[in-house]
Design a protein around this nucleic acid. Structure first.
Length: 263
DNA sequence: ATAATATGGTGAT
DNA sequence: TCACCCTATTATC
């Protein structure tokens, strides 16, 4: 489930449920045992998200860098939840605990590492310092397909495979259009779109790109196949025009689009 | 029981 | 371009 919205929502929820008070940290699976030991009994200062990266600032301990990758999950559970599955890190707070499974990265790092990792990222539409002009500059330099550029975390941090197809649909451009040929006004709108969409993603804790008014329901009440316009909908009719959604392979990942709505 | 898949990313070839 | 890493869930035999 992890695109940028997931990580920013996680940071918020961790800050809300793991403070105040000392944490109990453990690595039931064992692969983060040494790291967990450094965190155990200490207090969370702040969890922070940068794109798809999550950093834990824990008082008196080195920074923890977490990246969920494709399959990682950080699940909130009740305090009496049994140990099930390969739990890399369990953090127990005053009222809730969190179990981390399958992360691509879960490491103890240092401040320089944090700076290096974050400085290599493009602007993050969910951060106050996310700069639309920087996005336009980085996008305009690329000749690769726009859908490939949107996945590049140096171009824009936090966008993943669902958002990239949905953004191209919403902007009415084909995913294989070279990034440097995207008109300036579209680039500018695309940034605003990413801010609005990822912000909504954080609020709903899931990706819902469709306009509820178009579906005919109240905001946040969209369900099932109605949430997205094109993602994973190849062979099915476009929600807007009824034409058949198509599938392309762009940048070693699948990208979906409507041949009529995106020209 | 085994395979395929998943909203991600790296490093070798 | 490919192999690979991490894990859970669903699909197929």
């Amino acid at each position: 489930m992890p695109e940028g919205h997931t990580i920013h929502r996680l940071a918020k929820d961790l800050n809300k449920t793991l403070k105040p008070g000392p944490l109990t940290a453990s690595s039931p699976q064992g692969r983060f045992a040494e790291g967990a030991e450094l965190l155990d009994g200490r207090e969370l200062n702040k969890a922070t998200a940068w794109g798809k990266h999550l950093f834990l600032d824990i008082d008196g301990a080195p920074p923890v860098h977490i990246h969920l990758g494709l399959i990682g999950k950080f699940r909130r559970k009740k305090l009496d939840a049994p140990i099930r599955g390969a739990i890399r890190l369990r953090l127990e707070g005053p009222e809730r605990l969190w179990d981390l499974t399958g992360p691509m990265v879960c490491d103890v790092v240092d401040g320089d590492d944090v700076d290096r990792i974050t400085s290599e990222l493009g602007p993050d539409p969910l951060r106050a310092d996310g700069d639309p002009d920087e996005f336009a500059r980085r996008l305009g330099r690329r000749r690769i397909a726009i859908a490939a550029a949107l996945l590049d975390q140096k171009v824009i941090a936090g966008v993943g495979n669902v958002y990239r197809s949905e953004f191209c649909f919403l902007m009415g451009i084909r995913p294989d259009l070279p990034a440097n040929q995207v008109p300036h006004d579209v680039v500018s709108e695309m940034w605003d779109l990413s801010v609005a969409q990822l912000t909504q993603g954080v609020r709903l804790n899931r990706i819902t790109t469709r306009d509820p008014a178009e579906v005919g329901v109240a905001a946040g009440r969209i369900s099932g196949d109605d949430r997205l316009y094109v993602y994973k909908r190849d062979g099915r009719p476009c929600h807007r025009c009824g034409d058949e959604i198509r599938l392309l392979e762009i940048g070693q990942r699948k990208a979906w689009f409507c041949p009529s709505c995106q020209t």
